Simulated assay, not measured.
Amino acid sequence: MTILWAILAGLVIGLLAKLLLPGRQAVPLWLTIVLGIVGGLIGNALAGVLGVRDTGGIDWIRHLLQVGAAAVLIGLVSPAWSRRGR
């Protein structure tokens, strides 16, 4: 069940990250999910370092860090992915 939650969270985080970036990102959905999962893990680690991983209520800062990390990853991978077919 944990793997299913990671995939669903990766999908949501990845899609939110793609919405933040200007223009069209030429990465497929499966890569968006993978980068969303990795971004979520990086965001969790950053939240732990900053001491905001577990707060009372909704962990907005942690979620913003997750989406931000995924956006950076998608921003880095998207140009390389679009060039690979040339």
Rank of each mutant, 00 (worst) to 15 (best):
A71F: 00
V34F: 04
G14D: 01
L50R: 12
G36D: 10
I58D: 07
W60Q: 14
L50W: 11
I61G: 00
L64C: 12
A47Q: 07
T55E: 15
V72C: 05
T55A: 10
V12D: 00
G14C: 06
G75W: 01
G43C: 01
V72I: 15
V27W: 02
L16G: 08
S82P: 06
V67L: 01
G23Y: 07
G68P: 08
G68V: 14
L41Q: 09
R86W: 09
V27A: 07
G40W: 00
M1K: 13
A9Y: 02
I7L: 15
R62Q: 09
G51W: 04
L73M: 06
S78D: 10
S82G: 04
P22L: 05
A26C: 12
V49Y: 08
G68C: 14
A69E: 06
G10H: 02
L65D: 09
G75L: 14
L41V: 04
P22I: 08
L21T: 04
P79N: 02
V27N: 08
L46R: 06
L16E: 13
I74M: 05
I61S: 04
N44C: 11
L64H: 12
T32R: 02
L46G: 02
V49T: 11
V77A: 14
A17C: 09
G56I: 13
Q66N: 02
G51E: 15
A71T: 03
A26E: 10
D59F: 07
R24Q: 11
V49A: 12
L8M: 10
I42G: 01
V38R: 02
L16S: 07
L73R: 00
I33R: 00
T2E: 08
W30I: 10
V34L: 15
D54S: 13
I37K: 01
L19E: 13
L19R: 07
V38L: 13
W30Q: 15
N44A: 13
G51D: 10
G51H: 03
R53A: 11
G23C: 09
L31M: 12
V27C: 07
R53L: 13
I42P: 01
W60A: 14
I33D: 05
S78M: 04
K18E: 10
L31D: 01
G68W: 05
G40H: 00
L19Q: 12
I61C: 04
G43K: 00
W5Q: 04
A80T: 08
I37R: 05
G85S: 15
N44D: 15
G36L: 02
A80G: 06
I13P: 01
G10Q: 04
A80M: 10
L21D: 05
L20R: 09
T2S: 09
L29V: 13
I3Y: 12
S78K: 06
R62S: 03
N44R: 05
R83H: 08
K18W: 03
T55C: 06
I7F: 10
R84D: 06
P28Q: 10
M1Y: 13
T32N: 02
L19W: 15
P22D: 11
G56H: 14
L76F: 06
V27T: 15
M1E: 14
V72H: 02
H63E: 08
A69P: 07
P79F: 02
K18P: 03
G75T: 12
G57E: 07
I61E: 11
V34D: 05
L20T: 12
R62P: 00
P79A: 02
I58P: 00
L15I: 11
R83Q: 15
A69H: 03
W30G: 11
